[in-house]
Nucleic acid binder design. Sequence first.
DNA 1: TTTTGAGTTGTTCGA
DNA 2: GTCGAACAACTCAAA
Length: 479
Amino acid sequence: MTAATVVWFRLDLRLSDNPALHAAAARGGAVIPLYIWSPDEERPWQPGGATKWWLHHSLEELAARLERLGSPLVLRSGSSDQVLEDVARECGADAIYWNRRYEPHLAKRDAAVERKLSGRWNVATFNSALLREPDTIATKQGTPFQVFTPYWKACLATATEHEQDVVEAPRRMTPPLKPLKSERLSDWKLLPRRNWADHFREFGVPGELGARKRLSSFLNKGLDEYEAERNRPDHEGVSRFSAHLHFGELSPREVRDALRLHAHQGDGAAKKAAEAFLRQLYWREFAHHLLHHFPHTDRKPLREQFAKFPWTSDAAKLRAWQRGQTGFPIVDAGMRQLWRTGWMHNRVRMIVASFLVKDLLLSWQAGAAWFWDTLVDADLANNSLGWQWTAGCGADAAPYFRVFNPTSQGEKFDPEGDYVRRYVPELAKLPTKWIHRPEEAPADVLAKAGVTLGKDYPRPIVDHGRARDAALAAWRKIR
DNA sequence: TTTTGAGTTGTTCGA
DNA sequence: GTCGAACAACTCAAA
């Protein structure tokens, strides 16, 4: 009789196209799915508040699916190596499988776990999360890529020999002879104490089922308009895959195959749309590539001269930004969307990030920390790349003189003001002409809309023109 | 080693 | 109102 296999679940909370699970089931013996809660091992990036909410519900759903397949999910907390050892002993397993993580500090932890266990158990690791693992691609000089476009071209040019096929979900699973004891998910206290998360489902539904539904609805309506619509926070123009991809509820390989099918069955426009979206998916790959090869970039700038950039610290301004009380409607709408729904549209992420870094001269690390805690899709690689890109200190960074003007960005990408009205309801009655510049509205217009500036809605906390000049001056200092 | 072409997402000014 | 150029160099990646 084949012995049992422990499958250590992490950011791969799905049954379909899960290589570790698939390989374990294929062995024919018992399969013991295990999730270990060990936030201390993830320091300094323990899961943030919004992420924990998503994780809770995703685990709940995964547990229900595994139960139906025949082998219930085992929940344990403690140090990973110890728990793996305990569980493997308790069920008499001879093998331990998992899908790899790539965040440098966790890859290091995993390597230590593997060293410790591999003497006694057959340990095997797999790739569930990426289309291209970071070490499988390099420039012709053998160095890591630091510019997206050549990275993307090189990925495409060499895709076939590196492509991993999708594997099926197991149809049923053999449980261990004796049921293993499992902790109660609720005891981990992943849900916020108060009602913070009440509206997180406006963004999406945690779990593999929610991910599948999102994938098919995006392919049916959304993908073909993606290029035109993806910059419109007032519309439903983006995929909203982010949290599903982060938690591995959605396989990037399944997305890739679905895009391919869409391109194949459709016309030239469908082909273009599929490629445009695939390109975005490769930004995620690129982020993982960078963080892997430049492991300090979660905390420090990739470009060294930025280490001495004269960031300021102003708790009141940071707080105004966090709470969506800056007096710039598009910024405030974005920050409130984040707080309310656990997610923010990508165009608005750029606007609020530029505002923090260039208008307020607060460090990108302060912004990254807030996003880490409040985004349900918080992902170390994506978060680090995004913030460094905005701050101008990262790979492929925006030139320093590219400073977003929050007013014109609002007017360009939320032209009717619908997005602002939705998340900044105190401005809802302002005519569109003034919705992005309430401080310029005539007194009678404000009165009619029921807005008293400084009372119902703040005046701008900075003068953008002057703030821009100050940012450029600060940049010149470190040049 | 040196050269060359190119680089996600912007803003402002002046014709 | 629209359009192109300037912003200001720098670094990467390939030849």
